[in-house]
């Protein structure tokens, strides 16, 4: 009985939390920038959040593409279908690995840092100082970061996709001695711009909204202590990652039927 009560309580709390986070997201969306200084923050945040994540994304993409190429070759070789390696790598990366891995890497690099930054601003009274200057926290802090994350994630995913395929191409031609032409032709033949590339990028829009909202929510609600900020960052990383994987499953199921 107590287990059922606990389960019910926990489910109720989670639904409440999702409701609060959704309302929080709507409240940020409503606070569209009105001043130049607020709009400029979007550009600034895109640099800090997006541009500064490029190196991690590119490096990870090259290694993931390379590993995928080696593993794919091992399996395809069993069936004498190693000329299909390009297709295997491209479809895996464009449809699933690219969006999901970029989102997970992004959470680790940018999601946690956005939460910590806002948590520390709260801890050190910087948020109160901005309020005392009648600076809108929603417009000056929240909205620019939300937009920066939503815009950056698809762009970073495109980079990830490109470099993962380049990594795979490099390994397959240099190390696995496969025919470069076959690798590229199989991609060209089987990869569809609409079904594969666009469907993958479409998912990143939802991932961006999820990561940004969770990171901002836990940042602004962080307890005013160093452990409070650390807990908030951990929550952002854990909840964002789980939400991304769950959302990926739901979106993939829907897209496979609808697309």
């Amino acid at each position: 009985m107590s287990f059922i009560v606990l389960l019910g309580q926990s489910t109720y709390n989670q639904i409440l939390l999702i409701g609060r986070i959704t309302l929080f997201f709507i409240s940020i969306l409503k606070s569209f920038p009105r001043k130049i200084i607020e709009t400029y923050q979007i550009v600034l945040q895109m640099f800090f959040i997006g541009a500064k994540t490029i190196s991690i994304i590119v490096l990870s993409a090259i290694f993931i593409g390379s590993v995928l190429s080696i593993q794919g070759h091992y399996i395809l070789n069993m069936f004498g279908a190693d000329d299909q390696l390009g297709q295997l790598v491209a479809l895996s990366v464009l449809r699933e690995l690219g969006p999901v891995m970029t989102a997970l890497l992004f959470i680790g690099r940018a999601g946690g840092s956005v939460t910590s930054e806002i948590g520390i601003m709260r801890l050190t009274d910087q948020i109160n100082a901005l309020k005392s200057m009648q600076v809108s926290i929603q417009r000056y802090i929240m909205f620019p970061r939300l937009v920066a994350i939503i815009v950056s994630l698809p762009l970073l995913t495109m980079l990830f996709n490109a470099f993962a395929i380049i990594g795979a191409y490099g390994i397959s031609t240099v190390s696995l001695k496969l025919d470069p032409g076959m690798f590229l032709i199989s991609i060209n033949t089987y990869v569809s711009l609409w079904d594969d590339v666009a469907a993958g990028l479409f998912k990143t829009l939802f991932f961006g909204i999820i990561i940004a909202t969770i990171a901002l929510y836990y940042g602004i609600n962080a307890t005013k202590s160093s452990t409070g900020v650390a807990h908030a960052s951990t929550k952002t990383v854990v909840y964002s990652s789980i939400s991304i994987l769950l959302c990926d499953y739901i979106l993939t199921s829907m897209l496979m039927r609808l697309w």
Partner: peptide, 12 residues
């Protein structure tokens, strides 16, 4: 109004 915070609260 202007407020001088105890921890200064300058934007770092």
């Amino acid at each position: 109004t202007g407020i001088l915070f105890q921890d200064n609260a300058l934007l770092l």
